[in-house]
Design a protein around this nucleic acid. Structure first.
Length: 684
DNA sequence: CATATGATAAACAAGG
DNA sequence: ACCTTGTTTATCATAT
């Protein structure tokens, strides 16, 4: 999977670069034009600026969400990347309050629009939004009959608001980064051990490890995030969201945020002073420090003061493999707890529903799906955290769609499709909960896997999965072994019965034309034949009433999953998150009661993404461990074996592919699935 | 009931 | 000899 990591890195950097550069260029243009006229001359109108800000915010948010560092945490490099990405977020949130006079002046000299102006605009926008939301909420309170509905609607409102806040924050981040760039902070050479990626948003060079750690803390520690483990991977999103949540209740309540970055290289004195106060502020809030003891898991070293603690933290718990591993473990612990919490919560709901003799009403499907990314460990899928987002207290059961999905969740989604994650959660909880969803024909057996329907599914579920795996790979090609690995990493079911499903995988790969075997120097890799896929897709689309019927919700993607999407996937190397189908329609999945699949069946609309793999530790299961070096099919004069495929095999792409788990023993229930981290032995 | 689809099992071959 | 990979055929289950 090194390959994926590499790809991700590349794409991250390029994306970031694009995002930043576009913003920079736009603002720079304005800056250049306005420079002669001084700080107050605004070449860009407020409206334009707002528009630009919104666009940038969306872009930034999307990028950040999409480019969460891989869950792997396998290498320091990965961590570096995470930090690099995370810092800006904190910076974005903190910057406005802590800009020093000198810095401000400097900025003013360089910019067309003063930070105050920008900030004022932002705050104004925020205030307006807040007011609107509050108004709306009040209205809802007065009109909605049932408490539960109120909650749901409130949750929805909050969700929207949080999204908006997220955008605002991202915007601020962009703005601040821009400021930093202007000041040359971002262009400084990276410190040792901090590889610079072109365009990557970097913390100011010279930021000491301690400061970086502090930034971490600032980002996560002060927001009631008790689980240290989450900090590692969950950062950006959780941070952002946390902040959003806080802001929701009281935008001004956020603790004064200090920002290191901006002071770095600017004013040592100020910097130092800030540092000191920072220590005081954060010592109390630092989750890793309490009662004079380092609370790093398994550490408990005594530290007299916070400064000493920081030293200790940086020396003993620096960014290395061990710390990373510990962090990961903590992450898993948290995930497990979250899962458990969700289960218990749903059980409670079911119990309450039952005792009140009122059928549990279909809830807005998206259940709090915190598992999402943390659960999905596929490839480079970041195990980051939308999942760990703390939920708004007011909506314990409210649908909180992971932010990571927000940007791409289309409004047109049918309820059945929206729940991408909700369905997934249901998967984990349906054994306990009552029929939460109406009309969902959940077979009573084991629903486990998933098959994103948007993938070039050529045939069976396994096929779909296979293609998904292939598509998710950065370069759209995987060796058989990598495909195996992907399966095991992604779907719990495939962690066992290896012989069976592997055989099936091979069978499908061989049987269907849409899978193309490409031979190159190092062996053979499998790719998805786009043309073939498209062909089948179109056939399927026109030929399947069911599909046609579901066009808006499901097929939309089908059609959407065109070359461009695939190209995008390949480009971004962002597996699930980068896959609109997964994001939007959720993946098609269903565990069928038995092996069957219901291709095109109405129930098939329920696409559940269950990335069973709750712990990324399965990576070691890879037979190869690492992915193939990125071969490029275009440059290798590959030997392509063309297959004759049965005409009717077409497939499915669509709607669903499910993976049947019929034979698998009933024991594989939710709980067990969650505990399958150690099923590696099943693979062999 | 026929058909389509998909999963599973198994045999076999080729290559490392 | 063994394993992996890849192909092919057969059979069964389920859905339409």
């Amino acid at each position: 999977m090194m390959q994926e990591s590499a790809n991700e890195t590349i794409s991250n950097s390029s994306m970031s670069q694009n995002g930043m550069s576009s913003l920079s260029s736009q603002l720079d243009a304005g800056s250049r034009d306005g420079r002669s006229s001084g700080e107050t001359s605004s070449e860009v109108s407020a409206v334009e600026l707002l528009h630009l800000q919104q666009q940038q915010a969306l872009r930034a948010a999307r990028q950040l969400l999409l480019h969460q560092p891989g869950s792997g945490l396998k290498s320091p490099k990965n961590n570096d990347k995470q930090r690099l990405l995370q810092v800006p977020v904190s910076v974005a949130m903190m910057s406005p309050q802590v800009i020093t006079p000198q810095q401000m002046q400097q900025i003013l000299q360089q910019q067309v629009l003063s930070p105050q102006q920008l900030q004022a605009l932002l705050q104004q926008q925020q205030a307006v939004m807040l007011q609107q939301v509050n108004t709306h909420i009040n209205t809802l309170l007065l009109t909605v009959p049932y408490a539960q509905q109120q909650q749901q609607q409130l949750a929805a409102q909050q969700l929207v608001f949080q999204q908006q806040l997220l955008q605002m924050q991202q915007l601020q981040q962009q703005q601040h980064l821009l400021n930093m760039q202007r000041q040359g902070l971002l262009s400084l050479p990276p410190g040792p051990g901090q590889p610079t990626l072109p365009g990557q948003t970097l913390p100011p060079a010279g930021l000491s490890p301690a400061e970086l750690q502090q930034l971490w803390k600032d980002v996560t520690g002060s927001h009631a995030m008790e689980d240290n483990g989450l900090k590692h991977s969950g950062l950006d999103l959780s941070t952002t969201n946390n902040s959003s949540t806080t802001s929701t209740s009281n935008p001004k309540a956020s603790p004064p945020i200090t920002h290191h970055g901006i002071s770095n290289g600017q004013s040592p004195v100020l910097n130092h002073r800030r540092e000191s106060s920072l220590h005081e502020e954060t010592a109390a809030a630092h989750s890793l420090y309490g009662h004079g003891v380092c609370k790093w898991p398994g550490c408990e070293s005594v530290c007299d003061d916070f400064g000493q603690f920081l030293k200790h933290l940086n020396s003993e718990h620096a960014l290395d493999d061990r710390s990373t591993a510990q962090c990961r473990v903590q992450m898993q612990v948290v995930q497990q707890l979250e899962i458990q919490l969700s289960k218990e919560r749903e059980r409670l709901q079911a119990m309450m529903a039952h005792l009140h003799m009122r059928p549990s009403e279909p809830k807005p499907s998206p259940k709090p799906l915190n598992l999402v990314s943390s659960v999905t460990m596929s490839k480079n899928l970041p195990s980051v955290s939308p999942p760990t987002l703390p939920q708004t207290p007011t909506t314990p059961t409210a649908p909180v769609t992971p932010l990571s999905q927000m940007p791409q969740v289309p409004n047109v989604l049918s309820p059945a499709n929206v729940p991408c994650m909700g369905a997934m959660r249901r998967h984990h909880t349906d054994k306990y909960s009552m029929p939460l969803s109406s009309g969902m024909n959940y077979s009573n057996t084991y629903k486990i896997s998933i098959v994103p329907r948007c993938i070039p599914v050529c045939n069976a579920p396994l096929n779909g999965i296979s293609s998904q795996g292939i598509m998710e790979s950065g370069d759209m090609q995987l060796t058989l072994n990598e495909i195996y690995s992907w399966f095991t990493r992604t779907f719990a079911y495939f962690r066992r019965n290896a012989a069976t499903w592997k055989n099936a995988v091979r069978h499908n790969l061989s049987l269907h034309k849409c899978f193309v075997r490409v031979e190159n120097v190092k062996g053979a890799v499998w790719t998805v034949d786009e043309m073939e896929y498209q062909k089948r897709r179109s056939q399927k689309i026109t030929g399947s009433p069911t599909l046609v019927k579901n066009l808006p919700s499901s097929l939309g993607y089908g059609a959407a999953l065109n070359a461009s999407l695939q190209a995008a996937l390949a480009e971004t190397s962002l597996p699930l998150l980068g896959n609109p189908c997964l994001m939007n329609s959720a993946s098609g999945m269903m565990g069928a009661s038995h092996p069957g699949l219901m291709s095109g069946s109405p129930t098939g609309l329920l696409h559940v993404t269950t990335h069973e793999d709750l712990n990324g530790t399965l990576d070691h299961l890879d037979t190869n461990g690492h992915s193939s070096p990125g071969y490029s099919p275009h440059t290798q004069l590959p030997l392509i074996h063309v297959k004759e495929e049965p005409l009717n095999m077409d497939d499915e792409d669509c709607p669903m592919s499910l993976v049947t788990t019929a034979n698998h023993s009933p024991e594989l229930d939710d709980d067990r699935e969650l505990e399958e981290g150690n099923l590696s032995e099943d693979l062999e």
